[in-house]
Design a protein around this nucleic acid. Structure first.
Length: 906
DNA sequence: GCGACCCA
DNA sequence: TGGGTCGC
């Protein structure tokens, strides 16, 4: 075989797939009963083909309607074929249309069968030294196989070269025609030799090599079968001719007519919508088949930029008027600080039409700055517009702008769109969701970076210090880009699954809720924390002293480098794991393991965890208390995690230890003010409940319906004992299994967790799936679906794309599979608590505007600060609303406690 | 098992 | 920038 650097030409036998797809797939129909199974099957096959043969030219060939030259040759040809079923016939035209929209040449030659068109093109290609791949579901095509022609079946993903043909048929490709002539074909009504099947045909051909030689020596064949052969000698040449695929048909199409593929996305999108192939629509809008965001920026029309600056009242009046008339406008604030609690407004920018934007500077106070309009006067003029919920605004991360405006006593309403959230809902993992990234990705625009105008590092200017020559275009661009991003992203959301609803009903209405929580903040008892810090310091120095003693020398416990030297060089402890750089690891699990052999690692582990707590919480929390409010104002981030959860920073509320005494003491420092209490309510076992709901497993549903202790119930099933007999150890194991399942843990992981051997762990898992078969089915299905679609969804339709789900690297693929299992559960939990927050906030503002406020959200928990007089009512209402945030097939249990501090409220 | 934030 | 710990 010659090496050929040009990719092979791929010739697709569309007709063969048509029938196979029709029979292989369930009878899919659209909502108005249009059959689509074959359309989907063939389209899916073509898509796969494109992936498998990236640089190749592809030609798709179908049979034409009506008779062919074979009918003229032999009247009875294909006489035994049943007529095409009506529900297949109606699918042919749609398939042709999809092929065309995909930009693939579609060949239908009247009077010539697809086989012969393919044979002819294959012949043409090989004669020009181009290799050929024939994609077909029809094994008769094996006769075309040669050193330069390979057969593949894209549906079964099998390939057949020369050796493949020999293996499969027992004869060489050149003998296939003779073979087919001997065996005949019932359906095509090719006569063949009576009683001669594959085995006989192969035997004969192995002995006589070809048909004419066999006929010549037909007298040598003994027995009844010999008689049948001799009877057939008259018809065999005809049979042979019928079975022969022609390679010399006259076509008005040649390989030189192949042009570069040009897919018509619009047309294809229309067709996919018509046939309701929802899964493909999102992928189509982006060139990449799986992950919508990894595509090259589409060639976007770039409007001419008309950016201006307003420094006099007359111009401002004009803009105010235009903004009032606008159906939707983009706006952005420029401020003195990125921290929302300290930020003061330096300017405002607006955009109504793509390409046109204005900046209104209000507080640039560098030496020589031009005269600007008075800030408070301008803000006063904008106030009615900004506070009017019917005036629709679009922004990039409007939560920030809402917070900043609140610092000036303006309550931003009418948050109609947020491009950061549009991007996040559209593809949570594809990229970052800051404006520079989005502009590059969706608009093919390189925006002015903040660094470019403000400098970086210690010399970085705050916005009020930046020269207006530079600041104005930067600020105006922000508004312009935001508007255009919205125009690009909005239709994408609308046409992709249920993403529009996730965005509009969950993430967008959450913005003002989070903004209010951030602004309110939470009360922190600084003196408790300082006390705690001191105690931690004492304990740490004790540990340090002990560690130095054990080590026989003084060293910095915080330095992994010094620690490595002592553990591995000095004491020669075994190296369990290495860091990516090759140094022996001192990570926690490693030290935990080494603690069996040496005293030092245990001291280090404890020291480290105390040190972490001290530096991140007990030392830092008091510093985060805001001078103006006396409270701590966490930032909630809505566009960070892949699964839809919120994250928080300054402080990160999600990392406070939950079970340890140290963690409890940190929670004790989160307090209620005089006359108020904290109510903390959390969803009990929400992820397991979601698993029960999504899987529909009877056993799990039952256990939850009866309010059983789920870990105990699991233990009873897995260890085959009654509920009463479950030991605490068995319950602990069951709990580990339950969580392990949610995280996609392996038997290996579970065995480590439980400190049992792997076989035992595997046995537990097997028992679990035996007892809860619905869970097993669910997990298999979701894995399968992830492979097919390239994404998974939460109950509400939030999507998580898994670009690695079909990666060649097995580890990456398995990691993606674990995410596929975990994300729907974790993401659904996130959706539910977000819905609850929106409800609860709404209710509290209506019913308890002065005596209760929601202050924190941590994982599956909401915390409300409430007047003692309203305690019972608020507690009940909170539980009720959280429980009602989703209707699952299991009850959503919410547990709530009350206390003077967060720990007590548990 | 993986990811978010924080620290050195 | 990488390593660590916590969470789910």
């Amino acid at each position: 075989m010659t090496e050929n650097s040009t990719p092979p030409v791929v010739l697709v036998d569309g007709s063969s797939y048509l029938f196979r797809a029709y029979h292989a797939l369930p009878p899919l129909t659209t909502s108005n009963n249009l059959p689509t199974g074959a359309i989907k099957g063939v389209t899916s096959m073509l898509r796969r083909l494109e992936q498998d043969y990236p640089g190749s030219k592809v030609v798709v060939v179908f049979d034409a309607k009506g008779k062919t030259f074979r009918h003229e040759m032999y009247e009875e040809y294909k006489a035994n074929r049943p007529p095409m079923p009506e529900d297949l016939a109606v699918q042919i035209e749609p398939i042709h249309n999809i092929v065309k929209a995909m930009g693939l040449p579609l060949l239908i030659v009247p009077g010539v069968e697809a086989d012969d068109v393919i044979g002819t093109l294959a012949h043409e290609a090989t004669s020009k030294g181009i290799d050929v791949v024939v994609s077909t579901g029809d094994k008769d095509m094996a006769q075309l196989v040669s050193d330069h022609v390979t057969l593949i079946n894209t549906m079964t993903e099998t390939a057949m070269d020369r050796d493949g043909v020999s293996d499969k048929f027992g004869v060489a490709p050149e003998q296939i025609v003779d073979y087919l002539a001997l065996v005949g074909d019932k359906v095509d009504n090719i006569p063949g030799v009576n009683k001669c099947g594959p085995k006989t045909a192969v035997k004969w051909l192995q002995t006589y090599e070809n048909l004419s030689n066999l006929i010549e020596h037909s007298s040598e064949i003994k027995g009844k079968i010999g008689e049948y052969l001799r009877e057939a000698t008259d018809t065999l040449p005809l049979s042979r001719e019928l079975a022969t695929i022609r390679t010399d048909v006259e076509l008005d199409f040649g390989l030189e007519d192949l042009t570069d593929r040009r897919q018509d996305d619009e047309a294809l999108l229309g067709l996919f919508r018509e046939y309701e192939f929802r899964n493909w629509i999102a992928e189509l809008e982006n060139a990449d088949s799986k992950s919508p965001d990894t595509t090259d920026p589409a060639p976007v029309e770039k409007p001419e930029k008309r950016y201006s600056m307003v420094t006099d009242q007359g111009e401002l009046d004009q803009w105010l008027e235009r903004l009032k008339q606008a159906e939707l406008f983009a706006f952005d604030t420029e401020t003195t600080s990125l921290r929302y609690m300290d930020a003061e407004i330096v300017g405002l920018s607006f955009a109504i039409e793509p390409g046109e934007a204005v900046y209104v500077p209000l507080g640039h106070d560098y030496m020589g700055a031009p005269e600007q309009l008075d800030r408070d006067s301008v803000l006063g003029q904008f106030r009615p517009l900004l506070e009017d919920p019917t005036r629709k605004k679009v922004g990039q991360n409007l939560k920030y702008d809402k917070n900043v405006l609140a610092n000036h006593g303006i309550n931003l309403e009418g948050i109609a769109e947020d491009t950061m959230l549009e991007s996040y809902v559209y593809n949570s993992v594809g990229s970052r969701h800051d404006m520079d990234t989005l502009a590059r990705e969706y608009l093919n625009e390189n925006t002015i970076t903040y660094e470019a105008i403000a400098g970086k590092g210690a010399k970085q200017l705050s916005f009020n210090q930046i020269d207006l020559e530079q600041a104005a275009p930067y600020a105006a661009e922000d508004a312009d880009i935001t508007l255009r991003l919205h125009q690009t992203l909005s239709p994408k959301l609308k046409t992709t699954g249920r993403l529009e609803a996730v965005y509009r009903e969950i993430d967008l209405p959450l913005v003002p809720v989070l903004s209010r929580m951030e602004q309110r903040g939470t009360l922190i008892n600084a003196s408790t924390l300082r006390q705690h810090s001191q105690e931690l310091a004492e304990r740490m120095s004790q540990l340090e002293e002990a560690a130095h003693e054990v080590a026989g020398e003084a060293f910095n416990l915080g330095s992994t480098k010094q620690l490595q030297a002592i553990l591995y060089d000095k004491f020669g402890l075994r190296v369990i794991k290495k860091t990516p750089k090759g140094a022996p690891s001192t990570a926690e699990p490693v030290l935990q393991e080494l603690a069996h052999e040496h005293e030092l690692p245990r001291l280090i582990v404890e020291h480290r965890s105390l040190s972490k707590l001290k530096s991140t919480y007990t030392d830092t929390l008091p510093e985060l208390i805001h001078h103006r409010t006396g409270r701590v104002h966490t930032s909630y981030h809505q566009a960070v995690t892949a699964t839809g959860r919120l994250s928080s920073s300054e402080p990160n509320l999600q990392n406070i230890p939950i079970r340890t005494e140290e963690g409890r003491r940190i929670r004790q420092a989160f307090t209620a003010p005089e006359g108020r209490k904290l109510v903390a309510a959390d969803y009990s076992q929400i992820e397991l409940r979601i698993m029960a709901h999504l899987s529909g497993d009877k056993g799990l549903l039952n256990a939850f319906a009866h309010g059983e202790d789920i870990h105990r119930a699991t233990a009873a099933e897995v260890f085959n004992v009654s509920l009463e007999e479950v030991s605490s150890d068995q319950r602990r194991s069951a709990k580990a299994i339950n969580f392990g399942l949610i995280y996609g843990m392996s038997a290996f992981g579970l065995s480590r967790q439980l400190e049992v051997d792997r076989k035992t762990a595997q046995h537990y898992i097997d028992r679990y799936f035996e007892r809860y078969p619905g869970v097993l089915t669910y997990m298999d299905n979701i894995r399968k679906q992830a492979h097919e679609d390239g994404f998974v969804e939460t109950l509400f339709g939030r999507r998580l794309y898994l670009p690695d789900i079909n990666a060649r690297n097995k580890q990456m693929q398995q990691a993606a599979e674990r995410t596929a299992i975990n994300a729907p559960m974790q993401g659904t939990a996130a959706d539910i608590i977000k819905r609850a927050m929106i409800e609860v906030d709404n209710w509290l503002r209506q019913e308890h505007p002065d005596d209760a406020i929601m202050t924190m959200q941590v994982h599956d928990e909401l915390i409300i600060e409430v007047e003692e007089s309203a305690l019972d009512k608020v507690r009940e209402g909170l539980i009720q609303r959280m429980s009602a945030a989703a209707e699952l097939d299991v009850p959503l249990l919410v547990e709530a406690g009350v206390g003077d501090n967060w720990d007590q409220a548990h």
